[in-house]
């Protein structure tokens, strides 16, 4: 039984990591179109190091972390406290999840 469970977890990990490893491997592929057969090259990784867009996204990630922290505070209040309007506030959390993010983006 224990063996079975561990094998299952191994399969889940393979499922989760296959695309990621394939992508990483493709980074070493010479072809621009992710074509097989595979030809080794570090061309794309060296291109990466001079990419300024990446620096911007680093900043974006920090912004995201802050927003996540804000969300955690609210989750704390919503799960631990009872107060009037709690259900309403909880309900208001749904539209941002349910509506494709593209739309909120467009409206800004």
């Amino acid at each position: 039984m224990t063996r079975l469970g561990q094998v299952f977890l191994g399969m889940i990990l393979i499922f989760l990591y296959t695309p990621i490893f394939v992508l990483m491997a493709m980074g070493f592929n010479e072809s621009e179109l992710y074509e097989l057969p595979f030809k080794f090259s570090t061309r794309w990784y060296s291109a990466l190091s001079t990419n300024t867009e990446l620096l911007t996204s680093g900043f974006n990630s920090i912004v995201l972390a802050v927003i996540t922290a804000i969300g955690t505070l609210a989750a704390l209040a919503l799960s631990r406290r009872t107060f009037r309007g709690r259900s309403l506030l909880q309900l208001l959390l749904l539209p941002p999840i349910a509506i494709p993010w593209l739309i909120t983006g467009t409206a800004c």
Binding site: I67, I70, G71, L73, A74, R81, L89, L93, P96
Partner: peptide, 9 residues
């Protein structure tokens, strides 16, 4: 606790 999140939202 709630203000930052709902402010942002």
């Amino acid at each position: 606790l709630l203000l930052p999140a709902y402010g942002w939202l």
